[in-house]
Amino acid sequence: MSSLALALLNSLDIGLLLFIIAVGLNIVFGVLNIINFAHGALYMLGAYLAVTSVASLGLPFWLTLLLAPLVVAVLAAVVDRLMLRFIYQREVTDSLLLTFALLLILNESVRLIWGPGIHIIDPPSLLQGSFEFGAGLSYPRYSAFVLVVGLLTLAGLWLLFNRTRIGKIMRAAALDREMAQVLCINTRLVITGVFCFGAWLAAFGGVIAAPMRAIDPGMGDKIIIESFIVVVIGGLGSFPGALVGAIILGLIHGFGGRYLPEVNLVLPFIGMALVLLVKPRGLMGTRNSA
């Protein structure tokens, strides 16, 4: 029972972290109809900014958690202004190719600035150590923090899309951009804001993940694959689907890594293939459901 409980907690931990990252990818597609292949690089950039802020400059982790995603969001606004605004009315494949080029640019920029080596940062002192439970069960404090942050992010996004004017404007732009313009909604500003918000979520996830994972130039490539698995399982463009897909992938990693370590690497792809066979649009997939 202790082993099962720990596997479940680890699954939720992984799943909610993946949700924070993948939901930004889903929101961008749902509103802008863009498959942002550079999303993983923005996640990586958030982690590397955490390295510079915490390890090099000595800033508190909590301040880094606020500043690093904002820096990446500003960078996303520049990218949107200089590059992406020219392809918003084109086919999805054009955005995929352009953002893949952006991924390569950001990967090489990270190697030039931070080098090809691996970086590690420690969790803040408040979150070091473990919680001890009965039956010899212990759970890292930082993992519990990730669980809480994931749940707060989920609640915040739900409130944003269902209870705020900004969220309703974003949903209106996703459903019918021309009608939104007729209603005097500044769709140009909405598009830029949504792309920046997706980048902010990616970088926020990168900062959260930095004390848990080795930080290297290939981490963005790994996370974009997992993010695509999440959105394919849950449904491309679906906010609830991002949560469902992330939890399913977290369960695959949590229980597969503990009980089937020999095949754990291929289990996510098997799960994705099974979902596609049954529901090609994903478990909760609809075209414009962000």
Rank of each mutant, 00 (worst) to 15 (best):
V71T: 14
G24H: 11
R81I: 15
H39C: 10
A101E: 09
T64N: 13
F61V: 11
I87M: 14
S95K: 04
V110G: 03
L49C: 09
L45W: 04
L45A: 13
G115N: 13
V110N: 03
R85F: 01
L63V: 15
V51Q: 03
Q89E: 13
E108L: 14
G24N: 12
R111H: 10
H119E: 05
A55I: 04
S109G: 02
I105K: 01
L42E: 08
L96P: 11
G115K: 13
A50H: 06
A41L: 00
T64V: 12
L57S: 14
I27N: 04
E108C: 11
S95V: 14
V71N: 10
L6G: 10
N10V: 06
F29L: 01
V78E: 06
I14Q: 05
L70W: 06
L49S: 08
Q89M: 09
G115T: 14
N26T: 13
L32A: 07
L126F: 12
I35V: 13
N26F: 00
F100V: 12
S53V: 05
L66H: 03
L66P: 01
L96G: 14
G24Q: 15
F61Q: 08
N107C: 08
L25F: 01
A22R: 01
A5M: 09
I121C: 02
F86V: 15
L70D: 05
L18S: 10
L17P: 10
A5C: 07
P69I: 02
V74Q: 07
I14D: 12
V110R: 02
L98A: 08
L17V: 13
I113P: 11
